Simulated assay, not measured.
Amino acid sequence: MIWKKGLTVFSAFVVAGSVGIMAPTVQASESTSVSIAGNDMPHHIVEGGDFKTATLRPDRLLETYRLTKYDVIDIQVIGLPEGAGMSDIMIGPDGYAQLPYVGSVKLAGLTLDEAKAVLMERMGQYLRFPDMSLIMRSYGPRKVYVMGEVGSPGIHELSADNLNAYAALSSAGGIKRRGRSTQVQVLRVVGDTMYYKTLNIKNYIKKHDLTQNVVLQDGDIVYVPRSNGIKLDEDVLPYVNVWAMYKALTK
């Protein structure tokens, strides 16, 4: 991002449909971390985060895949009879799955290995068994926000095997001529922090730099600024507002 030296307190106003939202008050310096005030807003914007390079090999999808709402899994526990209430387990819209013996367990955001470890620990309090395996039955829809200088900005649904920044941009009609393909921003909220990563999509296309395409998660924002650069207050914060409003309306 381009940070203005000595940036002081400011606010922005955006309109989504017929709804007006006042942007949060922000104070920033030359640091890459910004604090934000607001109940439904992420409290910080930080450069970096757990952005994985997208793989072109579908057989490696499950290595980086993270469970999300409406995914359906089977849990096979060694020592329990087949079909003992562990098939077709759907993760709910709140990220939790309802399981026999242990009740509600949050699985959204975890890899299959991480989910297995959580379930082994929780179920081990009630049952004795040597091992278990998790099997994907079906993938829930993934929706990402593609904003800025693209052909069709808005919310786009991607399949699990095409959940990456380049696919999201392609789904949105590609980058417009006045869009800055060397400064594409990917934003992700984890807890009270919004992380961002800058991608050079031009190098991804022309120089085959595979590091410039990352795996997305449900709810990520992909933003293409105009060619004159990125300003936090004008380019990013309005979309943080839209994100916060959407999350509030879909809780």
Rank of each mutant, 00 (worst) to 15 (best):
S87R: 11
S87D: 13
D88V: 09
I89F: 03
I89D: 00
I89T: 07
M90Y: 14
I91V: 12
G92A: 08
P93L: 05
P93V: 00
P93H: 03
P93C: 03
Y96R: 04
A97C: 07
A97Q: 09
Q98S: 13
L99E: 15
Y101S: 04
V102G: 06
S104W: 11
K106I: 11
K106F: 14
A108Y: 09
G109P: 13
G109V: 07
L110C: 14
D113F: 10
D113P: 13
E114R: 02
A115E: 14
K116R: 06
A117Y: 10
L119R: 01
L119Y: 03
M120G: 10
M120T: 06
M120K: 08
M120V: 13
E121A: 14
E121S: 15
R122W: 10
R122Q: 12
G124A: 02
Q125D: 02
Q125P: 01
Y126A: 04
L127K: 04
L127D: 06
R128P: 15
R128G: 12
F129K: 02
F129S: 08
F129W: 09
P130Q: 04
D131Q: 15
M132A: 12
S133N: 13
L134G: 11
R137H: 12
Y139R: 00
G140E: 04
P141G: 00
K143N: 15
K143I: 14
V144M: 00
V144R: 00
Y145T: 14
V146W: 05
G148W: 05
E149I: 07
E149P: 13
V150F: 03
S152Q: 05
P153R: 03
P153K: 00
P153S: 00
G154W: 09
L158A: 01
L158M: 07
A160W: 14
A160T: 12
D161G: 12
L163Y: 02
N164G: 08
A165S: 12
A167G: 01
A167N: 07
A167V: 09
